[in-house]
Amino acid sequence: MRKEWPLWEVFIRSQQGLNHRHVGSLHAPDAETAVRNARDVYTRRKEGVSIWVVPSAAITASTPSDKGPLFDPAEDKVYRHPTFYDIPDDVGHM
């Protein structure tokens, strides 16, 4: 029998925020307990109004060694930023 509880990633929506943000991880035997534990570990100071938990094992991450090939090519492609348009005055603040 495996002794360690599986790891869960915790996402919390704060009072003001619209989206859930990753706040950390914890161990729990199942999803229901993970939500409870997240309440006790991560919302002691009124940090949140909603909690998501996801099994860490369900997350597929990019590998650090792929950092160059994945992200460097975007470096010299400034034209991908929408900064080359003249915005008519009538549009106002965007």
Binding site: L26, H27, R36, N37, D40, V41, R44
Partner: peptide, 8 residues
């Protein structure tokens, strides 16, 4: 017995 239980 576990950090989570300790805090709870």
């Amino acid at each position: 017995p576990a950090l989570e239980e300790d805090i709870a």
